[in-house]
Design a protein around this nucleic acid. Sequence first.
DNA 1: AATGAATGAGGATTCATTCAT
DNA 2: GATGAATGAATCCTCATTCAT
Lengths: 195, 195, 195, 195
Amino acid sequence: MPKVGMEPIRRAALVKATIAEIGEAGTLDVTVSQIAKRAGMSSGLAHHYFGGKDQIFLAAMRHTLALYAAEVRGALSMACTPQDRIGAIVRASFSHSHFQRDVIAAWLNFYVLAQSSQQARHLLGIYQRRLRSNLIFALRPLVGLRAVDVAEQLAGMIDGLYLRQSLGQSLVDPERAIRHVMRAVALELAQGPSR
Amino acid sequence: MPKVGMEPIRRAALVKATIAEIGEAGTLDVTVSQIAKRAGMSSGLAHHYFGGKDQIFLAAMRHTLALYAAEVRGALSMACTPQDRIGAIVRASFSHSHFQRDVIAAWLNFYVLAQSSQQARHLLGIYQRRLRSNLIFALRPLVGLRAVDVAEQLAGMIDGLYLRQSLGQSLVDPERAIRHVMRAVALELAQGPSR
Amino acid sequence: MPKVGMEPIRRAALVKATIAEIGEAGTLDVTVSQIAKRAGMSSGLAHHYFGGKDQIFLAAMRHTLALYAAEVRGALSMACTPQDRIGAIVRASFSHSHFQRDVIAAWLNFYVLAQSSQQARHLLGIYQRRLRSNLIFALRPLVGLRAVDVAEQLAGMIDGLYLRQSLGQSLVDPERAIRHVMRAVALELAQGPSR
Amino acid sequence: MPKVGMEPIRRAALVKATIAEIGEAGTLDVTVSQIAKRAGMSSGLAHHYFGGKDQIFLAAMRHTLALYAAEVRGALSMACTPQDRIGAIVRASFSHSHFQRDVIAAWLNFYVLAQSSQQARHLLGIYQRRLRSNLIFALRPLVGLRAVDVAEQLAGMIDGLYLRQSLGQSLVDPERAIRHVMRAVALELAQGPSR
DNA sequence: AATGAATGAGGATTCATTCAT
DNA sequence: GATGAATGAATCCTCATTCAT
């Protein structure tokens, strides 16, 4: 069964399996064996490629964050006006691929991991700062000095609405979440720029 | 060494130790022995009183939620106007006792626990519904039909700003969080009631 | 089955089992489970008392060294003349309890352990220095300045004859080993003191 | 990349790497991968050539023993008198190539291996018997019937002094060891032949 | 000939839980 | 009521060995 050039394929399979497994269990308490099995390989191989459970988790986190970042970047690239930019960010945050029960649960667990893992904290910090700066950049022309405050407000609302889905008994509804955020944006914009 | 009437004291000590331990570790991966030791007793006794680790966690969660609920209730009881009520809820959500690194981390972990524990999910559901209904009740007179939407918006913002603190490298700043939420409230109220 | 005050008993049983197991296997490649089983307890308990495999090995080594030291001390306490002292040391080195296939094999393995374990090296260093200084002390009155050289010679012979038994197909013969060493001693003493 | 006629080169590289690795680690707990890597090849190839880890160890041992034997043989071939023969054996035992920290550690580990491996024991037995018979042969003309006893004495001293170097914190000093053994020889010879 | 991908058994270690005292 | 001794299942990780390429 040994093949050559399998490394990227194996790694991708493991990352995907990790997210799925965490999402399904709702916990980081998944075993390497479970992950490996879902990815169609032995636990030994998982260790071979990643060196340990921690590294597997971090890789999964990196992947998740990268997917999100790519989604935001793609949406932003098509935005012409500041208003569009804000909409792009919000919509990407609740996009189909990002806004699924499993992924949300994994994301939540990454927040927890960040409490005890230096590296996880670092990764999540990058996400948070990027979201913040993307928002500020888009808001500056519209609300001037209030941009920082509004960005924090919106970032909080995005994260919070996202988080609250992890428990939602009802089906997740991205449109509803998007509408909530955009409503707050509209009200702020209506105030015009500060200074 | 056996004493009578110790049960409530022991239980309280264990609950407190559990929150502290989870908060410090940033994880639910704390051992019963650690918790018991911090509470000044043997692990066996912890089991004796709670029956198992899960029950200890649930008790800690119940306690945390009850504290928060009491804080909200207390604040609400002094509020006269709808506006006051909203302010009371927001302020309670970021109150001193509730808005500390340790407690926030524990809270975050309870969200995670809720993914895999029916009972934890139930408890957290109560919290979410209560927050939502408290907000709706206060908002109804002010924004009419929009109350539900605004309540969800605000609940999301509260949870999100709260959550974002768990990673914040900077010191937690309740006033700033409160200001963000109240600003959104003000803008909504300025629209007047719908219908 | 839990009892109180078992710790010293358990520890002693584990130490004894460790030496027996190493002796029988001829290797440090024995599992904690094997040791624990031979000592009549679970592997978990072995860890509980010693904290890890390394610590178990070190304890076994310490015990072995202590036994030897006690044997030497006892023999020395009854020696009146320098000659007696030398005889006591040599005889203790090949005493019944010390000169058995199992114990010799364990001892040999401790030498190996000392190559990679700082602590084991430390322990063995103590043994070597003590043997050396005991010999020098006894030899000084008899051979004067040559004491150091003769001590090293004898120490080497003792260790070497001891070591060679670990492979001996023939039955180990302490008397023969003792005779070899004492013969070398006699020849040196016949030279009289230097300077 | 496959080449022909590589076998002897590969085998030699592996043997050398094995001794170096064991010497460095101070343990037989080295992996085949480590050895293969040091020898500049894959672990698979190491298995291909030797069939298994045990065989690699045995080959390394055989090589080490052969080197020593060659050294002794070479030295003996230039010895004319029985005294010279003894000196040759002793000097070879502490020759530069043989008396290095790494090699000594490997040698010690081979002693351990001999406890659990029939074949290793066999190899070491050959070494021991050869040393013994070489000594007896050289001693017979000088000490007559005492040859056997003296040979055992000297063999013990050689092995013991060699062994003690493996722990020596001080630099290894072959001259000193040689002097110790030769001193014992001189004293015995001074007694003249028995019977 | 050579690689390194892949497996899977084995072992140290941890920990919730039980229970004799 | 209280302890902590004791168990054993569970998990991470390592590594010899095999084998497709």
